[in-house]
């Protein structure tokens, strides 16, 4: 019986791949929007926003993740022709006409959008509009580029990574994941996740406006996870593995994956990472950029080694220098005598 399921799953996988490969643009344009929107000069000029192009490059769109989603699924308030001048921005949580694979229920990003909304990246009513604007929205992390499952090297590398969160869901779970998530920028290799998060978190100027630790990226990079990842060890934890993908919460929040009560669970969330983790292990800071305040012991150990190394090498160099000097001096003296 398991063999049959396996064989059927392979068939399903092949079907998914075939549909993915054929990439039809027709379905997305069932309402014939591209009759106008394929025109290169289509656009308007407004005093406030300047020149805006409304061209949709058919070829680019038909190769994107959302190529099967009809335009009005996302551009919901475009109902009349000619279109209204002011239309709402596209929001990702709207339900579209795509069915979830295997489930036949309508697909939407509401679950992710809800998690994002209450996360540290979500809207904060205490913040100014400008400050809220500076936080990443869906589209900041998720591009709409279509990734070809069959011959995309980065994607194949990251498929190992997918299994980490979807462990135990079996092949069907993996297919579900690949078919629904393959368009995400974060479906790339672990190192891209770190680069993506670093694009804001390593930018001191950008992060200064928020009340966050400015040494996080530096701390990650000087620790084993960060160093080994740079060297291509994809099994180490990237930012998302500990901080979650959408529900990124501050360590003070009891629901956070990095809250002191939960961090032990986070380190050993799946067999890929550390198993049977003690609370001491979980508490040993992984972003340590030690200072006299946050970690004086480590700070002085580090300086101790720097002083020990510099001091020892200075003495040894001096000895070598003097020894060599005597040898040169002897030659010089012998020449002088002759």
């Amino acid at each position: 019986m398991p063999a049959t399921i396996y064989r059927h799953s392979i068939l399903v996988l092949l079907l998914v791949m075939l549909t993915a490969l054929s990439a039809p643009a027709q379905q997305a344009d069932a309402e014939n929007c591209n009759l106008c929107h394929s025109l290169a000069l289509l656009g308007i000029a407004t005093p406030s926003k300047g020149l805006r192009s409304f061209e949709v490059t058919a070829n680019a769109y038909s190769h994107s993740t959302h190529r099967n989603v009809i335009c009005r699924d996302c551009h919901t308030d475009i109902n009349v022709f000619p279109h209204p001048q002011e239309v709402a921005r596209v929001e990702c949580y709207k339900a579209c006409h795509i069915s979830k694979p295997f489930a036949l229920t309508g697909y939407s990003h509401a679950e992710q959008a809800d998690a994002h909304a209450i996360s540290a990246h979500g809207f904060n009513s205490e913040y100014s509009a400008e400050k809220n604007e500076a936080k990443p929205d869906c589209k900041y992390c998720h591009s709409n580029t279509f990734r070809n499952v069959v011959n995309d090297e980065a994607l194949q590398e990251s498929s190992q990574h997918c299994v980490r969160c979807h462990e135990g869901e079996g092949l069907a779970g993996v297919i579900l994941h690949v078919s629904s998530h393959s368009g995400h920028r974060t479906a790339e290799a672990s190192i891209s996740v770190v680069e993506l998060c670093s694009s804001c978190h390593a930018d001191q100027g950008h992060m200064k406006q928020f009340d966050v630790n400015l040494t996080q990226v530096g701390g990650y990079e000087r620790h084993f996870h960060g160093k080994a990842l740079k060297r291509g060890l994809n099994e180490v934890a990237n930012c998302m593995d500990c901080h979650r993908n959408h529900l990124n919460l501050s360590a003070d929040d009891p629901n956070s994956s990095i809250h002191p009560n939960n961090i032990q669970q986070t380190c050993s969330a799946n067999s890929y990472c550390h198993s049977d983790v003690s609370s001491t292990f979980a508490a040993s800071a992984i972003h340590s950029e030690p200072t006299t305040q946050n970690n004086p012991i480590l700070f002085y150990v580090e300086w101790g080694f720097i002083i020990l190394t510099a001091g020892t090498m200075a003495l040894l160099f001096a000895h070598i220098f003097l020894d060599f000097g005597r040898w040169v001096g002897d030659i010089w003296l012998r020449r002088k005598e002759k």
């Binding site: 620790h223 084993f224 550390h274 198993s275 049977d276 983790v277 003690s278 001491t280 292990f281 508490a283 040993s284 800071a285 340590s288 970690n295 012991i297 480590l298 150990v301 580090e302 080694f305 720097i306 020990l308 190394t309 020892t312 090498m313 040894l316």
Partner: peptide, 29 residues
């Protein structure tokens, strides 16, 4: 993970620094 069961967490952090820095000293020497 094993050592953290009976040693304080700071020891693992110190081990990480010590391994890296003492290696440098040893190589230079």
């Amino acid at each position: 993970v094993l050592f953290s069961k009976f040693l304080p967490g700071i020891v693992i952090q110190i081990a990480y620094i010590a391994h890296s820095d003492e290696a440098m000293l040893a190589l230079l020497a």
